[in-house]
């Protein structure tokens, strides 16, 4: 049986258009034009137990709305959702004890108290018995290396440390399903790495079903074998990441800073140059040619700095949409 089952899920928001200017404001007192915005359109998918699936899509694609419907914060306008056999919108206490949602930009820890206090409160809210609580806490504390931070007020923690604590707070009741909305947003590279490692390890150990959204390709690359790509409220791709990158991304980006301005002249006119001035250049290079090109550039040009970067998710999405234009035109 699938852990998460979504059929034809649709969410429509009613909003009002405000006309600019003083006259518009006055007019708005009496009459406002309502229009409907379909944030999620007839989405269907299902997740099996223990899967770790990534949700990809640009801002406003409908990722967060979907996660909110899965956790019962929002009720669907249309369609069906079942998680662990429950209908999330009913907000059954038994369901709430079995899942957790972590939003990267929102914090639920008590700002002025040490995280240990927030953990204890969650223990009481979720009715976790003290023994189970202690062993779950110990396990995660050692996984995340948090021992010295448990008694430091949250406001003194770094963003990365705070995020780790958020994760612990959400996982103390050992949920079977975990929703992560941008868990690494705004974090430095090392913290991102730590969080990713933890999610991976936790999923492996507990067979927790995880649905994760992120802007960072790295998150998804490392963690998820399967991805759902969503844009303008529709799922436009559901499959493995390898297939996705093979199908849509065939290049990487090379960024160069020149040691002397003469180098720029050599590059001008070369194939794949996207940006070029006296000090910098950006090149788009086919994946299999990256090593060769890098080697050649370093050998021939006075280069001060060179970096090879992945294409950003937003660009992947853009590519997908270049091939599959939305019928409504967005």
């Amino acid at each position: 049986m699938a852990v998460i089952e979504v059929k034809n899920l649709t969410k429509t928001f009613k909003t009002h258009r405000k006309e600019p200017g003083l006259l518009g404001s006055i007019k708005g007192l009496f009459w406002r034009e309502a229009f409907y915005n379909e944030a999620v359109k007839a989405v269907s998918f299902s997740l099996e137990e223990g899967e770790l699936v990534g949700f990809l899509g640009p801002n406003g694609a409908g990722k967060t709305t979907l996660l909110k419907m899965l956790s019962g914060i929002l009720t669907p306008t249309f369609g069906e959702v079942r998680v662990l056999g429950f209908i999330p919108g009913e907000r059954d206490r038994a369901y709430q004890r079995q899942f957790a949602i972590v939003m990267g930009q929102k914090n639920q820890l008590w700002w002025d108290l040490p995280p240990a206090e927030s953990f204890a409160l969650n223990r009481d809210i979720y009715g976790v018995d003290p023994k189970t609580f202690q062993s779950a806490l110990d396990e995660m504390v050692s996984l995340l290396d948090l021992k010295d931070l448990l008694n430091v007020p949250v406001r003194q923690l770094s963003l990365g440390q705070r995020m780790k604590c958020e994760l612990v707070a959400a996982l103390l009741h050992q949920p079977k399903v975990l929703f992560l909305d941008e868990p690494t947003i705004g974090l430095d590279v090392i913290s991102q790495e730590k969080i990713r490692g933890f999610i991976q390890e936790y999923n492996r150990l507990k067979r927790t079903t995880v649905l994760l959204t992120s802007h960072y390709m790295k998150d998804v690359e490392q963690l998820c074998r399967r991805v759902l790509v969503i844009n303008h409220g529709r799922i436009v791709y559901d499959g493995s990441l390898e297939d996705l990158s093979h199908r849509y991304i065939d290049h990487k980006v090379i960024k160069i800073r020149f040691a002397s301005p003469q180098a720029a002249a050599v590059l001008s006119g070369m194939e794949g140059v996207v940006e070029l001035d006296a000090h910098h250049a950006v090149l788009k290079v086919k994946k299999k040619e990256v090593a060769q090109t890098t080697h050649r550039l370093l050998g021939r040009l006075p280069i001060e700095d060179l970096s090879v970067e992945e294409v950003e998710v937003d660009e992947v999405i853009r590519r997908i949409f270049e091939e599959q234009p939305s019928k409504e035109g967005g």
């Binding site: 909110k68 956790s71 019962g72 914060i73 907000r91 206490r93 038994a94 709430q96 004890r97 899942f99 957790a100 949602i101 939003m103 930009q105 929102k106 639920q108 809210i125 979720y126 009715g127």
Partner: peptide, 18 residues
């Protein structure tokens, strides 16, 4: 505004008591 109320909706506790 900060989404903390959303967290109250997902916790196994009556939202008004929370």
């Amino acid at each position: 505004r900060t989404g903390r109320f959303d967290a109250m909706l997902t916790a196994p506790m009556a939202p008004n008591a929370h």
